[in-house]
Design a protein around this nucleic acid. Structure first.
Length: 422
RNA sequence: GUGGGCGUAGCUCAGGUGGUAGAGCACAGGAUUGUGGCUCCUGUGGUCGGGGGGUCAAAUCCCCUGGCCCACCCCA
């Protein structure tokens, strides 16, 4: 048997309904804030990610799906979305359009990682990017959009954690201070942190090894070392969020796995899943586009891990999506079949979910089927009904039935399933 | 990467000491003529992870190889 590639998965009904609903909700909310969807290739030149995400990062150093195409060009399946947005911004001259540009995206990303609960090698992200605005207000808007979206899904326990990474110059200075403070205990760091010491010292802050954590906890936070400008910026962001009553927690040790972030960085965690399970991550990246050869265009954005998001979706949302009433349409005989399908169309236009029976089974079997698919109502359409231009409306929950004039069926059914009062 | 566990029908599993496969659920049909959910009957469905070795005979014994799961590790 041929099986799916490790780290990928089949999303089957009814779970697929949740994905569709989450994505629809994202479009609705982000659209409202003025973010238009940008649809990008899933593969890009490898160099794009090396230059943006950063050579020393885990993503680039060991997690990319990189391969040579038939002409030997090195391509990579995108491990994240922002790099592609930046590339497209430059390549399509989006800087010539009214600024700032608000863009959203969703779709699969690929990272070759060790498998673990809630983590896949092909996973989906939903993200937005606000390009061409460097003010704290821009950051606040992006966080507000995020918060609004999560709230629309019914979340009330998610926490936004925030940190100030400073500007690149600050970071260099910080790393000096940081290393200075750790030098006496350098040998006590774990093996990976020994490597990070030279490759990517910031990541030591993110190490989960107990000893590393302890050592790091006594060091000066990045935020204490940053320039006045960076400090003012992020402080303003925090204040802006407070005014909007968006709860945030300051996390002095928060760093991200991508090199391009500066100043504002943030994550969303679910207390239910534990602090290690990040559902969303993002931050500001004012140098990304210029580093790629474009003009200086500041930007900020985030990406939500859709797989994890759906994992922790509130019951209220799941219920709303999954428990939609179903109406089974059961024709009897050949003449009824066509009539039944046109009835189905009427029902659909009326906002109902109304699958028709098309296998030609008996009424008995048809009702059995209707019952199994969870139909609330069955519509029976036989010769006698067609003759009188009626439909037999059967309430499967009550066990009652009534012959109804064809024209009145949709309204009748809507009332029965409780759609009428919406 | 280390350790442990599991592999038999779509799903959950049973198949002491070897004799070429079963149950429940699910799915399909039926229990007289156009009526469901309960019950009963019947049916569909498995190269017993793959390959090799031994044996008159293996799902069951031996070897090899891939797979999945759980910890730890790692990581977003």
């Amino acid at each position: 048997m041929i099986r799916k590639v490790k780290g990928t998965r089949d999303i089957l009904p009814p779970e697929s309904r949740l994905w569709g609903a989450v994505e629809a909700e994202a479009r609705r909310v982000f659209d409202g804030f003025g973010y238009d969807e940008i649809r990008l290739p899933v593969m890009e030149p490898t160099e794009l990610f090396v230059r943006t995400v950063g050579e020393g990062t885990d993503i680039v150093s060991k997690e990319m799906y990189t391969f040579a195409d038939r002409k030997g060009r090195s391509l990579t399946l995108r491990p994240e979305g922002t790099a592609g947005v930046a590339r497209a911004f430059i390549e399509n001259g989006l800087g010539q359009r009214p600024q700032p540009m608000r863009l959203s995206y969703m779709g699969p990303m690929f990272r070759y990682e060790k498998m673990q609960r809630g983590r896949y090698r092909q996973f989906s992200q939903i993200g937005i990017e606000l390009l061409g605005a460097s003010t704290p207000q821009a950051d606040v808007e992006v966080l507000l959009a995020l918060h609004t979206f999560l709230k629309a899904l019914g979340f009330d326990d998610l926490v936004i954690v925030l940190n100030n990474l400073g500007d690149p110059e600050d970071r260099d200075r910080f790393i000096e201070v940081f290393k200075g403070e750790l030098t006496p205990n350098r040998e006590e760091l774990c093996g990976d942190c020994q490597r990070r010491w030279t490759e990517n010292p910031l990541r030591i802050l993110d190490c989960k090894a107990p000893r590393c954590r302890e050592l790091v906890s006594h060091t000066t936070p990045v935020a204490d070392v940053v320039s006045d400008e960076a400090r003012t910026h992020v402080d303003a962001v925090a204040q802006g969020l407070e005014v909007l009553e968006i709860p945030v927690r300051v996390a002095p040790r928060l760093v991200r796995g991508l090199d391009y972030y500066l100043r504002t960085v943030f994550e969303v965690i679910s207390p239910a899943l534990g602090e290690d399970t990040v559902i969303c991550g993002g931050g500001r990246y004012d140098r990304l586009i210029s580093d790629l050869g474009g003009k200086v265009v500041p930007g900020i954005g985030f990406a939500i891990g859709e797989d994890r998001l759906i994992d922790v979706l509130p019951d209220s949302f799941k219920h709303r999506v999954l428990d939609v009433p179903v109406v089974a349409v059961l024709p009897l005989g050949h003449e009824a079949a066509a009539s039944a399908l046109s009835l189905t169309v009427q029902l659909i236009e009326g906002g109902l979910r109304a699958p028709a029976e098309v296998t030609g089974r008996s009424l008995k079997a048809g009702l059995k089927w209707a019952n199994k698919i969870g139909a609330a109502v069955a519509l029976i359409l036989g010769e006698s009904e067609i003759e009188k231009n009626q439909v037999l409306v059967k309430d499967l929950r009550e066990g009652t039935q009534e012959a109804v004039a064809r024209d009145a069926v949709v309204e009748m059914v809507r009332r029965l399933v409780g759609e009428g009062d919406k």
